[in-house]
């Protein structure tokens, strides 16, 4: 019967529109606050600083170069924070790794040797962090706070605070200074690590178990998730990526130096939280982290072009971070 068909059609249409409306309603803009804020910041600087060259390709690529280390450490930190833990030692690790890599290159171990020693430095510290947190059951905040001091001390001690120059041109090209065509190699590394991190978090069993561990450790344990193993691995990953960031600092500056990465741990944590990862664990996003990192970098860059001095930069940066997180709060009172 045609009339019945029409009715049925209408019903289907109605249902479709309802489900569409519902889907639309289900989208909470607060989940995307970092993207909105990031676009807002870009538009603002583009308009106000257009004549000062903010929107030039070279300046934008510069931002990508400056934020690469924070982004890369942020990817690994997203996993750590997703399990409900924290890693404060990453800044110090970059310093020590830059020095050990530089020393290895100086000693003639070659490109692979230098890279292996730098990454190995981060890996070993990550393993120690992981063991202390899972086996000795010390809260990660304390373990990594202590480790931050120890590693920094080692970095200063190893060459008596002297920088170690790197003359290995392939190393310097691959880890920081090079460009592929007009694309800075640091941007390439950022993209590669981001994509890998995103896939691991969202598409693999390990990622799912990471989020489960942070979401409800007891339930995850009862389900057979080896939560200690997961936690151990995220700290190893964080150490490893901090070591990698150390290589990038070294390659970019053609030297290893104990001052590299100073205060980076806080920038990294800020990027992760700004990106939408929950400080209490269970919810995490790698892409959000990288956008968060880019946003902090863009703000830095814009403020410098504006001619603000360091003290003003710090104040404005702090305000923007607090505002962005405040607007993203679900518990915001209506």
């Amino acid at each position: 019967m045609p009339s019945k068909d029409i009715k049925l059609n209408e019903q289907v249409k109605l249902q479709n529109s309802v489900s569409f409306a519902k889907r639309f309603k289900g989208v909470d803009w607060r989940d995307y606050i970092v993207y909105i804020a990031f676009i807002g910041v870009i538009i603002y600087f583009s308009v106000t600083l257009y004549d000062d060259g903010f929107l030039t390709t070279s300046n934008l690529l510069n931002i990508a170069r400056q934020t690469a280390m924070i982004s890369i450490m942020g990817v690994a930190m997203t996993f750590v924070i997703s399990t409900g833990e924290i890693d404060l030692s990453v800044g110090s690790i970059t310093a020590l790794a830059s020095l050990t890599a530089a020393l290895a290159l100086k000693a003639g171990l070659g490109l692979l040797g230098g890279v292996a020693v730098g990454l190995g430095t981060g890996l070993v510290i990550g393993v120690v962090n992981g063991l202390l947190i899972t086996k000795v059951a010390i809260p990660s905040f304390l373990v990594t706070l202590g480790m931050m001091g120890i590693v920094k001390g080692l970095a200063m001690w190893i060459t008596d605070t002297a920088p170690v120059p790197i003359v290995h041109s392939t190393f310097n090209f691959l880890f920081g200074s090079g460009d592929i065509g007009s694309i800075p190699i640091l941007l390439v590394w950022t993209l590669v690590i981001t994509v890998i991190g995103h896939i691991i978090l969202k598409k693999t069993a390990f990622g799912r178990q990471t989020l489960a561990t942070g979401g409800n450790e007891m339930a995850a344990k009862f389900t057979g998730v080896k939560t200690s193993k997961i936690k151990f691995l995220v700290f190893v990953g964080s150490g490893l990526m901090a070591g990698f960031a150390g290589l990038l600092y070294a390659g970019r500056m053609h030297a290893g130096r104990f001052t590299f990465g100073e205060g980076d741990e806080l920038s990294v944590i800020a990027a992760v939280i700004l990106g939408g990862t929950s400080l209490f664990g269970g919810v995490g996003t790698v892409i959000g982290t990288v956008i968060g990192s880019l946003m902090i970098g863009t703000i830095n860059n814009g403020l410098i072009i504006m001619g603000l001095d360091v003290s003003q930069q710090m104040i404005v940066k702090g305000l923007i971070i607090i505002l962005a997180v405040a607007f993203g709060r679900k518990t915001l009172k209506k």
Binding site: L211, A212, G215, A219, F222
Partner: peptide, 15 residues
């Protein structure tokens, strides 16, 4: 002990 409350139905079932 049984659920990760902030995760979805699907994520809990497949854990």
């Amino acid at each position: 002990q049984g659920l990760i409350l902030q995760h979805s139905v699907k994520e809990n079932i497949i854990l």
